[in-house]
Design a protein around this nucleic acid. Structure first.
Lengths: 237, 237
DNA sequence: GTCATTTGTGACCGATTGGTCATTTGTCGT
DNA sequence: ACGACAAATGACCAATCGGTCACAAATGAC
């Protein structure tokens, strides 16, 4: 479980008051609405990542030291809270600069892909992202489709174009992209993504240098891809 | 959603009786205990695969045309039913012959891996397997760990040994396996597995010839693996 | 300090949940 | 045809769920 929440959340532990009998007792704490809302979303992201989207609001509230009624002051329904969690976890974790990085022909494609997947893994390899994404996918949430489209238009297809250029093959504009060459880069994506699955869904402890592994993955694919692309472009299937 | 259940389940549609007023009315159906139990497990596999392990027993019962009380005649608790579903879905979907196939040096490793992953995909690429496995993983069920161990001992490590043999590198017995070379084959596994994720978790419609894709994946990895293995064996890291 | 504002509480609601059990009803041997 | 046994039902239970609301209690402006 990530500790990001505890690190970014300001230290607002409930004040303690001394009871007449001497026992410490936490008093009710009133936070500014905006701050409390932030806290709830962040805590909900951790909570739903761990317990699934069916986790109870009462238990979530307990991790915040409030009652579940308080949550409904900020969100009209649990579903609305979950949508906010989606936004919080997924929105703008995709760096628009990555699109430029992939097309930067001043460095070899191998280097670009290694740099990209290094940065990408850095962004999405945590329990919040990986697990909530899986929960959402299993639930059939449309967010999943939006994400897949993003990957295809911003990563897979550009990468196909770049590899064609590096191999001196026709451009995507002149020769339509084939399913087979798209699949080559989906394969690379799967290699990296599966690292995250093993770690955050299977709960395997990671072994080996992740940067090394990602670099190996990229090099392996680029070693085999020329054969695939030349065949795919030749037979167009 | 797979139709396997409907195909293997015998045609035992409830008998219809004519009511006095002329409307058709289904009568109560008494099945032999063993047969009903089989039906419940198979229906539960489909049901939980679609709705998740938190799906209600009442709804599951509805798909069988019985009441949820009947389920508890055969299973002491919902949890017990789920365990039975795990067994039904996962047990003996791993073909022990695969271990021999991987070590059959009468054919090149490329062919062996392609044949293996073709058969493997055939077995696990359905909604029951893929989705229930993900649900179980997210839940932290120990079955996941057992599965990963199986893959490692029966697939990853043997494959590493075979590739070393094909490249004329030291045997696993003489030079310990490294995390880096294991990761090479986890990468291949991830490529194939991610195909299933896209199809059954993301709900993407498949495009392209799956056999072709798997063959491309294997060839790509084997094209890049020699570099990885030689480096890993040389530096032992 | 005082008081209005607004944050948070706790009791409550109705629907849903897994699970139980006395009763009903199909099925099969005779 | 008929009884005995097993299979299935439906009413019921207690716990849990998301959500509401009247009220209590911090907080900040003055």
């Amino acid at each position: 479980m990530t500790n990001r929440s505890q690190m970014t959340r300001p230290a607002t532990r409930p004040t303690m008051k001394q009871s007449p009998d001497g026992s410490a007792k936490r008093t009710r704490q009133h936070l500014p609405a905006a701050e409390r809302e932030r806290q709830i979303v962040e805590a909900a992201a951790d909570f739903f990542a761990e317990h699934g989207l069916e986790g109870q609001t009462r238990e979530l509230a307990k991790t915040l030291g409030i009652t579940h009624s308080a949550i409904f002051r900020y969100f009209p329904s649990k579903e609305a809270l979950i949508e906010r969690v989606y936004d919080h976890v997924f929105l703008s974790r995709w760096d628009p600069d990555w699109r430029g990085l992939l097309s930067d022909r001043s460095q070899p494609l191998e280097q670009r892909l290694i740099r990209f997947y290094h940065a990408y893994a850095e962004r999405i390899f945590d329990a919040q992202w990986m697990r909530i994404f899986m929960f959402a996918g299993l639930k059939g949430h449309p967010m999943t489709n939006r994400y897949v489209s993003l990957i295809r238009t911003q990563l897979i297809r550009p990468a196909c174009g770049e590899l064609r250029a590096e191999l001196g093959l026709p451009t995507l504009a002149s020769l339509p992209i084939t399913a087979r060459e798209e699949e080559a880069f989906w394969a690379l994506h799967g290699m990296v993504f599966y690292l995250g699955i093993r770690k955050f869904i299977y709960g395997m402890r990671t072994q080996g240098d992740q940067s090394q592994i990602i670099a190996d993955d990229v090099r392996a694919l680029l070693a085999g891809a020329p054969f695939i692309l030349r065949a795919a472009c030749g037979t167009s299937g």
